[in-house]
Every structure is written in C-alpha cells, then in structure tokens.
C-alpha cells in the first residue's frame, strides 16, 4: 500500500483553557438539543485529541462526563444557576463523545454521542440509607401520582387546561410512604374549568410549558397530593415558510378569545409559580 503520511494529532491538557472552551460548547450543544429531561453540566473532561483539518481549522476529539442538573430542559434558568442533582437525590451522569471544529476562533460541534445513566442504588444507599430511589416512569404508582397531581392542578386553575408532556423523574419515598414525581406540562386551547373531554384540547400554537413537582402520600383510607407548578413564558411560534418561501404571520389560536389573557409579567419573569395545591 502506498505510504500514507502519518496522521498527527496535538496532545492537549484536559484542563487547558482551550479544551475547556470546546467542552463548554459541547455541553451547550447537548442542552440545546435535548428533547426532554434535565439540563446537564460539565463535570470532567476525560480525553482530548486535537486533529488538524484540511484546508484549515482543527477538530477537538473530546470525551466528557456530565451531571444532570435539577433544571428541566425547557426551563429558561441559565445553566450556571442550575443546581447539580446531588448523590442523595440519586444523581444521573452523562458520558459523551464529541468532535468540535475550531476554525477562525469559533467552535462548532460536528459530532455528538451521549448516553446518561443513574447512579447505582447501592451507591445512593451508601450516602443516604433512607433516601428515595429513582422509579421507572411507567411504574403504576408513578403514573397514578402524576395523574392525581395534574388533575388537582387543573382543578384549581383559572386559566388554560394543562396537559402532560412528559414524566421526567420519579422516586418511591419509604417514609412517609409516598411517591415523588416531576413532570412537564403544556397549556392547551381549553379553559380548565370548562373541560369536558381533554382529548379535544390542543396545545397552543405559542407553546407555554410548565414544570411540576408533586408528592402523593398514601394514608389510611386515601391519599394526599401536593403539587407545585412553575409556568414558563410562552415560546414564540417558529416562523412557518409558505410554499413560495415567505414566512407566515403567527397563526392566531382560535381559542385565544376564550382564554383569559396570560398573566402579564411585569417585569417579565421567566417563570410563574403556581401552588402548592394540596
């Protein structure tokens, strides 16, 4: 075979500022592309190789570890203000491989592959014998707890009827026997007090997401639920291109007139907390 010129990569320190810059661009990429769950933050840079790229630039080949934060992925809170989920809360780690192009001082992600995994139950038990462990999202108690919590939230709502987007986290808590759940919701074009058939409600064109935390406590002869939801500001409708390429103006939702105006934020707040509803 013809002799190929040796491929040469540049070794770089994992804590080198340039490496960290590339890793932070990679973490932002994760959080911008996650479809659900929680934002992740950089925990450790495992490996880095810097390959030359013809005709110009360099490709940073990175292996990074991340940790899940407590911020839901659609929460507008800046990542720097998001708390890292602690070991006692049953932490979740991400392992990612990235290729990040550096050209003209700019970093661009070329390739990303990540997977996340929760800490082992044994490790959680080591640091906190009585802490709750993560439960499967399709666990019947989890689904029931979310159902009861969302019903309680909609029952007290004076505005839109909110429907479930995803169950993002759940734990069985031993004492008192209860189920702790976190889930995402979105406003629909129905008025909560007037809903007869939730299946007829549609998500608003201008998405308004919310994030709820709830505890369903079992007791003799029944159950108690406490739920608190944080509603995020509405997200503008992405412009839809007409066949000839022109952008369509925001389609107004027909139910807008039926709904009370969304709570005006003054000054605009990123989120409105509703609850706890017991």
């Amino acid at each position: 075979a013809p002799h190929l010129p040796g491929l040469v990569y540049r070794e770089l320190n994992c804590d080198d500022p340039e490496t960290e810059q590339a890793a932070l661009v990679a973490v932002d990429y994760i959080n911008d592309h996650l479809l659900g769950g929680y934002k992740h933050t950089l925990n450790q840079i495992d490996k880095v190789k810097v390959w030359p790229r013809r005709p110009m630039g360099e490709v940073f080949e990175l292996e990074i570890d991340t940790l899940e934060t407590t911020c839901y992925v659609r929460d507008p809170t800046p990542l720097a203000n998001c708390t890292v989920r602690q070991l006692t809360e049953h932490a979740v780690e991400g392992d990612c491989d990235f290729q990040v192009l550096k050209q003209d001082g700019q970093f661009t992600v070329l390739f990303a592959k990540c997977h996340s995994s929760p800490d082992s139950a044994e490790d959680v038990r080591k640091v906190c014998p009585q802490c709750g462990l993560l439960a499967p999202m399709n666990d019947t108690k989890v689904v029931h707890a979310v159902d009861v919590a969302l019903t309680a939230f909609n029952t007290q709502s004076n505005g839109s009827y909110f429907q479930l987007v995803e169950i993002s986290r759940a734990q069985h808590v031993p004492l008192p026997p209860s189920t702790y759940v976190e889930f995402a919701v979105a406003a629909t074009d129905c008025v909560a007090k007037e809903v007869t058939d939730p299946a007829k409600c549609n998500l608003l064109a201008e998405k308004q997401y919310g994030f709820c935390k709830a505890t369903l406590t079992e007791k003799v002869g029944g159950e108690d639920v406490a739920v608190t939801c944080t509603l995020f500001q509405t997200q503008p409708v992405p412009p839809q291109l007409q066949p000839d390429g022109t952008e369509m103006s925001n389609p107004t939702s027909v139910a807008d007139s039926a709904l009370p105006p969304p709570p005006q934020a003054d000054p605009p707040v990123a989120a409105l907390v509703v609850g706890p509803v017991v």
Partner: peptide, 27 residues
C-alpha cells in the same frame, strides 16, 4: 493488506495526563 497509517504524536511539552479535574463529584 493496507498499511495502517502510522499515527505520530507531535513532539511538544508533555501535557498533564487526562482526565482533567472533577468539577462536582464522581458517580
């Protein structure tokens, strides 16, 4: 057989071995 191109590491100051520092905690 296709010769595997030899990968040569550029000479330079030895970078401190990776992995880098842990910013929060290790699972």
């Amino acid at each position: 057989n296709v010769a595997q191109p030899s990968i040569v590491v550029a000479a330079g100051p030895m970078a401190r071995p990776c992995p880098g520092r842990i910013r929060h905690f290790k699972i």
